[in-house]
Nucleic acid binder design. Structure first.
Lengths: 144, 144
DNA sequence: CACTTATTGAGAATGATTCCTATTATTGAA
DNA sequence: TTCAATAATAGGAATCATTCTCAATAAGTG
């Protein structure tokens, strides 16, 4: 995945942010662990090469620059993953029993319908829409 | 809204939990402030009548009993609101800047469209759907 | 009323995250 | 390459929402 590093570099350059060792390692670690990960998990992977305080700063910078996306889990811990423009736009199927999350990539029609919904639902509100999240809850086969 | 208190009482009784002064005040406060609220916001409303530590415990108990629902916002703070069987099904408009959340009640048509989406998106998956969550992200007027 | 048990209150403890600041790396220009 | 000028780092302290502890209190129950 050299494309990734290159793409990240461009993205950061566009934001006027340097791609340093620590940031490079952070992105690399995230690209190798599937799913959204906590700072602690990432730190376990990069080890002492990136101290925790620096890791947090890197995660923050990378998120601001749009390289990563952050989500707050039900346990109050932030999880990071590569932003959607790397992984593609997707939604989640969440098992309320075991917590497993499965990605779902919407079809063009489905996504279109969703954007239509966003539009009509925010028609009245004075709100600058930047995105949406559609999550389906239920029980996976293993938990039934 | 005496119905609310009665319904809450029944619900708690079914769970073997007492409806005490503090819990009553907590539910009452939440029923009077629209949208999901943080513990701090609720505490500002109930004042010293319910100490913060007790408030947190009440919120936890009420959530476990299904009277309230909790959500972890983008700012890492938990927000509580009356569960959907009190307030009706709704979705959220989330300001990614300040974390404020506003309820949106979908029209019948919108909700129908959403259920259609859920159906087509889970068509392939072996998944027992129990609900969905649709959240629109953006920037509120105050943050622009 | 007396007993048993759930609940409360006050503050300490926790833990993820952020802030501070001296030091170090990076970059652009000479 | 070398030198500023500036961005970034390390590490430790600080923050802050939330949880925990445990003695004191309130709520049902007989």
């Amino acid at each position: 995945m050299q494309h990734l590093e290159q793409a990240v570099e461009q993205r950061l350059a566009a934001e006027g942010v340097r791609l340093t060792q620590g940031r490079r390692r952070t992105v690399e670690a995230l690209s190798k662990i599937p799913g959204p990960r906590t700072a602690a998990e990432i730190h376990a992977r990069v080890g002492s090469a990136v101290p925790l305080s620096s890791l947090y700063r890197s995660l923050s910078v990378l998120t601001d620059a749009g390289v990563l996306s952050a989500q707050h889990g039900a346990d109050g811990v932030i999880r990071f993953e590569l932003a959607e423009w790397f992984t593609g736009h997707h939604h989640h199927l969440i098992c309320t029993s075991c917590g497993t999350v499965v990605d779902i990539t919407p079809t063009v029609d489905q996504e279109k319908a969703m954007e239509q919904l966003v539009e009509t639902m925010t028609a009245g509100a004075d709100f600058d829409v930047s995105g949406h999240r559609f999550e389906i809850e239920g029980t996976c086969r293993a938990c039934r």
